[in-house]
Design a binder for these strands. Structure first.
Lengths: 215, 215
DNA sequence: TAGATTGTTAATCGATTAACAATC
DNA sequence: TAGATTGTTAATCGATTAACAATC
């Protein structure tokens, strides 16, 4: 069960999520900023400095006592930890509004994530191009994934077809699913899923707002 | 509509997030399903039944010992807790791809969330309509918010203008910010923010995938 | 040396799970 | 009564924070 991995100790799940936020923060920083303290970084992100240092400590520390962090060292280490150093390729299923938004999302390339194919069943969408990538018929999806050896799939289809689309992706060899449909999808052992249910965010906001009103 | 009895008790943050998932699950359930067990619901959502019951217990329990949960009672109670029973009105800033996707998102109305105005600076977008809502110039935003008494604002602008847009929203009286720009925005006391940084999800997926590959 | 900073341990706090009582 | 189910407490597990040592 808890075996040491080649890249070191197991990282706590919440720490991984913050690693992503740290990296994102560093990428948005102006080029000329070469060093930053835990206090400054933590304040901007909205956490405690001690938590940030504890996070870095899980990997043995990213800096040196007495010195601020080198932003470029930090960025490289985080990319490495998050497995973003080699290119990863993605397909997107569902070229509706949300699918188009993701296809046009500029930030992916910054993390070496490349969209290679878009698939839909709607004849009006097939043949359209987003950032140079053509929308193809769903019937070509599995061959495309196999030929290109793609491992990441983004699901932007209505919830009624999310599970069959997911199954087709997995059958074709997809190992990671990024699911924007409002239904959780089930996958076999060895495949990982990241569910991004947009409703959860707005409902949480609604609750927080109601609490704030009472104070 | 402040309910004193169950309210007042603070709900653990992670429980609130799961409440949103439970409600979402119930809304996607076929109309004719009138009762459901904690085991069945938990399995579909991907958590333990005991955690679901513990969640419900924070509000005194939603059901009766020995009986399954009544889906409609459950749904009503969750809507109440999440403060989704009265209508809430929203404005959206930034009518690019992601903004358009959200403007077209069908699920909001199911939770009594209504988009009332869309704002952008791009002349090509101003005047367009999404689901009947016109895109207006950003200069009209503050008056619109004040006149309509709107409390929720959705930010879908590039990260360089996220903070000034956020400040303008807050100045006009917005109390809750749903932020899709990749930069965390800062707000004064009394205003709540839900940051939805899309990059975090894909980076987490990238990490999980790298771990899965090692096993 | 003094002040600022990160590394590291230990304590605290909160979230999850196990166990079983209560109820139907 | 037996089996299924939720309510509730207590134990376990994990995440956050405080404190301070180490270093520059």
């Amino acid at each position: 069960m808890n075996r040491p991995s080649p890249r070191g100790k197991r990282i706590p799940p919440f720490t991984v999520l913050r690693f992503a936020r740290y990296l994102n923060f560093l990428c948005n920083l102006p080029e000329e900023v070469r060093e930053i303290s835990s206090a400054e970084m933590a304040r901007t992100i909205g956490i405690k400095a001690t938590q940030l240092r504890q996070d870095f400590f899980t990997l043995g520390g990213f800096g040196r006592q007495g010195r601020k962090y080198d932003t470029r060292v930090l960025e490289e280490r985080l990319r490495e930890v998050l497995a973003l150093q080699g290119s990863q390729h993605m397909v997107l299923v569902g070229a509706g509004n949300l699918g188009q938004a993701l296809a046009n999302y500029q930030d992916f390339e910054r993390f070496n994530l490349y969209l290679r194919g878009i698939f839909d069943t709607n004849p009006k969408l097939i043949g359209l191009r987003f950032r140079g990538i053509e929308v193809m018929g769903l019937e070509h999806m599995q061959d495309f994934i196999r030929e290109q050896g793609i491992e990441l799939g983004i699901i932007c289809v209505p919830h009624s077809v999310a599970q069959p689309v997911c199954d087709a992706l997995v059958e074709a060899g997809i190992k990671g699913i990024w699911n924007f449909s409002p239904e959780n999808v089930l996958v076999p052992e060895g495949v990982v899923v990241q569910n991004e249910n947009l409703s959860v965010g707005i409902m949480n906001l609604s609750y927080q707002l109601s609490i704030a009103r009472e104070d």
